[in-house]
Amino acid sequence: MSTIEIIILALIQGLTEFLPISSSAHLILPSQLLGWADQGLAFDVAVHVGTLLAVMLYFRKDVGAMFFAWSNSIVKKEHNGESALAWWIIFATIPAGLFGLFGKDFIEEHLRSAAVIAITTIVFGLLLGYVDIKGKQTKDIKSLGFKGAMYIGLAQAVALIPGTSRSGITMTMGLMLGLTRDAAARFSFLLSIPAIAMAGSYLTFKLVLEANGVDWQAIAFGSIVAFISAYACIHYFLILLDKLGMMPFVIYRLLLGAFLIWFVM
């Protein structure tokens, strides 16, 4: 991979991992429009590491509080809001793990086309716009409850279908359940931590099984670019969310989906 390919693909991954606009819809564009070769497993691992470090660093206080509270809930049987949130996130991650385990081959074979990505980009973009307008937006994260967390976890499993957007559909479900925009986004970001970790671990396992050499310089550079772009994305998205709402992202998804439909016709 050239330096410009590394920068562009790492930026795409870092930004689209957390914006509700679908990373798969964007990652298909360089290969389809520019004829770039697949970036390979090693680079996928690199950008997953970068985005995982970004979200963990940004929410380090929340992650630390949840970890210690969760540990106390096991060792000392002490429970509070942070331990409950940690358990919600753990259980809400299970549907995506199971769907990925049993549905991965089917998705890879039948659902990774530009046509599918175009349709899901538009459909789930419209759904996001609808709930952003109609949602009550009165609840904070701790009002979500176990059942609400599992609904968002099931939505995250659907995001394995390319073009859906993991962050987009989890925020959509959060808004549908009455969360504020900020609460829906924060829960989506916290829920991404085990999801990205699982995906990264799976890709790392596959990479270890491969006999091909690894360009460690490209991996390091890709990780750094993905980390910086993802961290900045989370920071400014949360700042601008209440001012802009979801509608700019909805409009962008509709335009992107229309472009993809035009491209594949």
Rank of each mutant, 00 (worst) to 15 (best):
S2C: 00
T3W: 13
E5P: 01
E5L: 04
I7Y: 05
L9P: 00
A10S: 15
I12T: 08
L15H: 01
T16N: 07
F18G: 03
S24A: 14
H26Y: 11
P30Q: 04
P30M: 05
L33E: 00
L41C: 07
D44G: 13
D44P: 09
A46C: 12
A46V: 12
V47W: 08
V49Q: 10
V49A: 14
T51H: 11
A54K: 10
L57V: 12
L57C: 13
F59Y: 15
K61M: 10
V63M: 14
F68L: 14
A69C: 09
N72Q: 15
N72F: 04
S73H: 12
K76S: 12
G81I: 00
A86L: 06
W87A: 01
I94S: 01
I94M: 11
L101E: 00
G103Q: 08
G103F: 09
D105C: 01
I117Y: 09
I117E: 04
T121R: 14
V123R: 12
L126G: 05
G129W: 10
K139T: 05
D140K: 15
I141V: 13
L144H: 06
A149K: 12
M150E: 06
M150W: 10
I152L: 09
V158D: 03
S165M: 03
R166Q: 01
I169N: 02
T170Y: 02
T172N: 04
M173D: 01
L175E: 00
L175T: 00
L175G: 02
L179E: 00
D182N: 06
D182L: 14
D182A: 11
A184Q: 03
F187M: 09
S192N: 07
S192C: 06
S192Y: 10
P194K: 09
A195E: 05
I196K: 10
I196E: 11
M198Y: 03
F205D: 02
L207A: 12
E210F: 01
A211K: 15
A211Q: 13
W216N: 09
Q217H: 09
A220R: 11
A220E: 02
F221R: 11
I224W: 10
S229W: 08
A230K: 09
Y236R: 06
L241C: 01
L244T: 01
M246Q: 04
M246A: 08
P248I: 02
G257F: 06
A258D: 00
F259E: 02
